[in-house]
């Protein structure tokens, strides 16, 4: 379709000014990422001197040898996985409960589900910390997971609810009519419909959890997730390129699921939606 698009008349084409501004906007958004990438290879370890005096892979070697980086990386991946899994289960359950049925209080419950994503992270973090203190819970791995799950859940819920609303009620009825029990209707009819939404929601949730810092600061004990590691590195300007090396790795790790999620939720021409 796109390749057959006809040339648009002159008055519908964007002006030079519009194009320059759009390009400038994109540069503003992306240039810092390229700066970080470039300075992961610099031979200068203190300043952001431009152009870099020389390029080296030395910092990758240094970074890979550091145990604290590996630990933080491992913790972040584990937290993100656990939070995502929790969010997928709870978010899907919530979506099924709220997608179609109407009951009194439904609007308020929906709002309560979606609120954590709109709430400033500092409030979520503070509230969780206060709550944990009240019931005497020791901050640790699972408190970080719980904190992250509050907003990961919203991502999964929103994705699944949007998809479920596009499933005509007659499909569920047809399935029941043909003899399917509830779990069979879920397995054979609904799950295939929401599968890509789950995958996309899960990947976004994973990426969000992976770079979360504010809620983590409040809910973590002595553990350092990767974002916290970055944060503490800022106060130790030695070996600055190491931070850049880790940043490049993080960009790659988060970019892949986000791109996948984007491709999976594109409208499907084959009509299988």
């Amino acid at each position: 379709m796109r390749s057959e698009q006809l040339r648009r008349p002159a008055w519908e084409r964007p002006s030079l000014f519009t194009r320059v501004m759009a390009a400038a906007g994109l540069v503003f958004l992306h240039a810092p990422v390229w700066v970080i990438t470039l300075y992961a290879f610099t031979t200068e370890d203190r300043t952001y001197q431009f152009p870099p005096p020389g390029l080296t892979l030395h910092w990758f070697e240094v970074a890979f040898a550091r145990d604290d980086i590996w630990q933080s990386m491992r913790l972040s991946l584990l937290v993100a996985s656990a939070a995502t899994l929790l969010a997928i289960i709870l978010g899907t359950l919530a979506a099924f409960a709220l997608a179609r049925r109407t009951f009194s209080g439904k609007e308020s419950i929906t709002l309560l589900f979606v609120l954590p994503i709109a709430l400033p992270g500092i409030l979520t973090g503070l509230a969780l910390l206060a709550g944990m203190r009240t019931i005497g819970l020791e901050p640790g791995f699972w408190t970080i997971v719980a904190g992250h799950a509050t907003f990961c859940l919203v991502i999964v819920y929103n994705n699944v609810v949007a998809r479920l609303r596009r499933v005509p009620p007659s499909w569920v009825e047809a399935s029941m009519d043909l003899g399917a029990r509830g779990h069979q209707t879920f397995r054979y009819v609904l799950l295939p419909q929401i599968a890509t939404a789950l995958l996309a929601g899960g990947m976004l949730a994973f990426a969000l959890s992976f770079d979360e810092i504010i809620v983590t600061l409040f809910t973590a004990g002595h553990q350092r997730t990767l974002p916290i590691w970055f944060y503490s590195e800022l106060f130790r300007p030695r070996e600055r390129p190491v931070t850049n090396v880790v940043a490049v790795v993080v960009i790659l790790v988060t970019l892949v699921p986000i791109l996948l999620a984007y491709y999976l939720t594109r409208p499907d021409e084959r009509g299988s939606e």
């Binding site: 009825e173 029941m176 009519d177």
Partner: peptide, 20 residues
């Protein structure tokens, strides 16, 4: 009796065929 336990089947107005 729930629909899955009734010996009755339905042709839906929108056919309700499963697209996948």
């Amino acid at each position: 009796t729930p629909p899955f336990a009734r010996n009755v089947n339905t042709v839906f107005q929108d056919y309700a065929l499963f697209p996948h």
